[in-house]
Amino acid sequence: MKVWILNLEHPDQPLDIEVRELMYDAATGAFSMSRPIGDDWLQRIVRIQEPRPELFHQSQQKTVVVFDSGAVASEFLTWLKAADAEADHGFKTMRG
């Protein structure tokens, strides 16, 4: 899934990344990804995002996340990279 991360401070400097999946719960401000460990498919990597994004839009082919600040957008990108690597490792532990 392609994720575009934009910020209102520098709208001309978008960040992007390709990740396995990304889910967002607007009620809690939690971003998450699946991380199976062995046969346990219920594990999740979760980040409660503060400040919350100004906009989150997801379609089948892309996700757009907009933050107020460039620093927050960069921190979110750093988390996405680490979470995707952790999720990838988890998928490699699957049995069967």
Rank of each mutant, 00 (worst) to 15 (best):
M1L: 11
M1G: 12
M1R: 07
K2R: 14
K2S: 03
V3Q: 00
V3M: 00
W4E: 11
W4D: 09
I5T: 01
I5W: 04
L6M: 12
L6G: 01
L6I: 00
L6N: 02
L6Q: 06
L8Y: 06
L8H: 09
L8T: 01
L8P: 01
E9W: 05
E9P: 03
H10Y: 10
P11M: 10
P14F: 09
L15C: 03
L15H: 07
L15F: 13
D16C: 13
I17G: 02
I17V: 13
E18I: 08
V19S: 05
V19T: 01
V19H: 03
V19G: 01
R20I: 12
L22P: 02
Y24K: 05
D25A: 14
A26V: 10
A26G: 11
A27F: 05
G29I: 06
A30T: 09
A30D: 13
F31C: 01
S32C: 05
M33P: 01
S34W: 07
S34V: 11
R35H: 04
P36H: 06
G38V: 10
G38R: 08
G38A: 09
D39M: 13
D39S: 15
D40K: 13
W41G: 09
W41Y: 13
L42Q: 12
Q43S: 09
Q43T: 12
I45V: 14
V46H: 03
R47C: 12
I48W: 09
I48Y: 08
I48T: 11
Q49Y: 06
Q49E: 15
E50K: 09
R52V: 05
P53W: 10
P53R: 03
P53A: 06
L55S: 09
F56Q: 01
F56S: 03
F56M: 07
F56L: 00
H57G: 07
H57Q: 14
H57P: 02
S59Q: 07
Q60F: 15
Q60S: 13
Q61P: 00
Q61S: 11
T63N: 00
T63M: 03
F67L: 06
D68V: 14
D68Y: 07
G70N: 13
A71Y: 10
A71P: 00
V72E: 06
V72G: 08
A73E: 00
F76C: 02
L77I: 04
L77P: 03
A82D: 08
A82V: 06
A83F: 07
D84H: 10
D84N: 15
A85G: 05
A85Q: 12
A87V: 01
A87Y: 00
D88G: 04
H89M: 13
G90S: 03
G90I: 04
G90K: 02
F91K: 02
F91W: 12
K92F: 09
T93E: 04
T93Y: 05
T93H: 04
R95T: 15
R95W: 14
G96I: 04
G96C: 08
